[in-house]
């Protein structure tokens, strides 16, 4: 079961990553695109057990750090998505979360991830950018992720839920 779940999760991350850099730049606002990898990680954290979600967050982050157009210091997205998986897994209770809880979690996760990434950039002075510019990027990113939540999260959560019987009888 766990092998199948890993396979499904990795396929989801790959698909998210490819769409994020090929399809979404065409509809992006000033280059800010929805972070689909983050949505996959949050979906996993809300449905299956925490260690899996944490590892998936780390893996998705490393993929974001290394896959082609990326040129920032590797490890920054890995750090951000690991922390996000941890936070989202804490939010989860032992029941299916309500729609509002899901949207709230995504918004918080998106804010946390983009901020952690931006802050790590400031600490490393990877690219020197202004705080107001960063804040704008963070807010637009949150908006994007929340907008896509109704389309991405329910199918993913159903998929992960079926593969990992967290709330057994559903």
């Amino acid at each position: 079961m766990s092998v199948v779940r890993w396979a499904v999760a990795l396929v989801a991350v790959t698909l998210a990553l490819v769409l994020q850099v090929t399809l979404f730049p065409h509809v992006a606002w000033h280059g800010v695109v929805p972070n689909l990898c983050l949505l996959v990680v949050v979906a996993a954290a809300l449905t299956v057990e925490a260690p899996f979600a944490l590892l998936l967050g780390f893996t998705a982050g490393v993929a974001l750090d290394l896959a082609p157009p990326a040129d920032h210091v590797a490890g920054r997205w890995a750090l951000a998505l690991t922390i996000v998986a941890f936070l989202a897994a804490r939010v989860r209770q032992d029941v299916r979360p309500t729609a509002l809880a899901v949207v709230g979690t995504v918004a918080a996760a998106s804010f946390a991830a983009t901020s952690v990434f931006a802050l790590s950039g400031m600490v490393l002075s990877d690219p020197a950018t202004s705080v107001t510019g960063l804040l704008q990027v963070v807010l637009v990113a949150v908006l994007w992720d929340v907008l896509l939540t109704p389309f991405v999260l329910p199918p993913l959560m159903r998929l992960f839920g079926r593969l990992g019987p967290q709330w057994a009888a559903t």
Binding site: V21, V33, L64, P68, A70, F117, V137
Partner: peptide
């Protein structure tokens, strides 16, 4: 492919 602005780098594939 285009890098996202969240990643703070202006790169393309």
């Amino acid at each position: 492919a285009l890098g996202s602005r969240q990643s703070q780098s202006f790169t393309v594939t």
